[in-house]
Simulated scan of single mutants.
Amino acid sequence: MMEILHFEFMQNALAAGLLTSIICGIIGTLVVVNRIVFISGGIAHASYGGVGLAFFLGLPVLPVTTAFTLGAALIMALVTLRARERADTVIGVLWASGMALGIILLDVTPGYNVDLMSYLFGSIMAVPRSDLPLMAGQAGLVLVLVITFYRGFMVMSFDEEFARSRGVPVNFLYFLLISLVGVSVVMIIRVVGLILVIALLTIPPFIAEQRTRSLGSMMTVSTLLSVAFTVSGLLLSYLTDITSGAAIIAVASVCFFLSFLLPDRRAH
C-alpha cells in the first residue's frame, strides 16, 4: 500500500486532507455546539457563485471563492442577528442564488470546460501542489484565531446570555465564527465537494461530542476522526476507483451509525 505515496497527486491529496481535517475538527465542533449547521449549509452552497465568478473573470479559484464566500457568510451572519425570525428564508434564498449565479457564470464563460462534478462532489485527487500553501495559510489562520478567542467561543457556545452578562463580545465572536466557517467551507469543498461539506463538517464533531466532556477535547477527537475518515476514504477511492469525496463521506457515515452502538461516555 505504501507505493501509492510515491505518486505526487496522492501526496497532495493527503496533505490537503490533513489540512482540511484540522479545519473540520476545530470549526466543525463550533458549528455543532452553536447549532449553526443550516447556516453552514447555506454558506457552502452559496460559495458556488464564487467558483463561477473565478472562472468567468479568469482568476485563481481559491482566493476568489474565499472572498465571495466570506461576503455571503457575513450577510447571513447579519441577517441571523438582526432578523432571526426570517433567517431561514434569507439563508435559503442566498443558498439558491449563489448556486444559480455560479451555474450562469460558468455557462457564459468562453471556452468553459470545468468539470462540474469535481466541485459538487470534490476533487481531492486533483488538488495541485500550488494550492497547498494557501490552504495551509487558511488552516493556520483559523487555528490562531480560534486559540486567541477560545475562551470567548467556549462561553458563547454553551450560554450566550451568560456570555453577554460577563461582557463577552458575542456579536463580534459570532461574526468571526461565521467568517471562519466561510473560509473553512472553501477548503472542504476541494476535498468532498459542496454537496457533501456538511457531512464532513458535522459527523466527526457529533461522534466526538458523545465521548468528550470539554470543547477542547471535542475538537481534538473530532480532528483525529476527520483524519481517519479522510485517509481511509482516500485509500478506498484509490483501490476501488470511486469518487474520492463520496468515499470519504461513506466511511464517515458508516462510523456515524456505528457510533450509536457504543456507550455514551458522558453518562459516566
Rank of each mutant, 00 (worst) to 15 (best):
L62H: 09
P63W: 08
P63A: 03
P63K: 04
V64I: 15
V64C: 07
A67Q: 02
A67R: 02
F68G: 05
F68T: 02
F68R: 03
F68L: 06
T69H: 05
T69D: 01
L70T: 04
L70M: 10
G71L: 11
G71M: 08
A72C: 12
A72T: 12
A73P: 00
A73F: 02
A73D: 00
A73L: 00
L74Q: 13
L74N: 01
L74M: 12
I75H: 02
M76A: 05
M76R: 00
M76N: 05
L78S: 14
L78D: 10
L78C: 05
L78E: 13
L78A: 15
L78Y: 15
V79N: 04
V79M: 07
V79K: 06
V79E: 08
T80A: 08
L81N: 09
L81I: 14
R82V: 11
A83M: 12
E85G: 07
R86E: 12
R86Q: 14
D88N: 13
D88L: 08
T89H: 05
T89Q: 04
T89E: 09
V90K: 04
V90S: 09
I91G: 02
I91L: 07
G92E: 09
G92D: 08
G92K: 06
V93M: 14
L94T: 06
L94Q: 09
W95D: 01
W95E: 01
A96L: 12
A96E: 07
A96Y: 08
A96D: 04
S97K: 01
S97D: 05
G98V: 06
A100S: 13
A100H: 04
A100I: 10
A100P: 02
A100W: 05
A100T: 12
L101Y: 01
L101F: 09
G102V: 04
G102N: 03
I103G: 01
I103K: 02
I103Q: 07
I104D: 10
I104M: 14
I104F: 15
I104S: 11
L106T: 03
L106H: 04
D107M: 10
D107S: 13
T109F: 09
T109W: 07
P110A: 08
P110G: 06
G111K: 08
G111F: 08
G111I: 06
Y112R: 14
Y112W: 03
N113C: 00
N113A: 12
V114P: 01
V114C: 06
L116Y: 15
L116Q: 12
M117P: 00
S118H: 10
S118I: 06
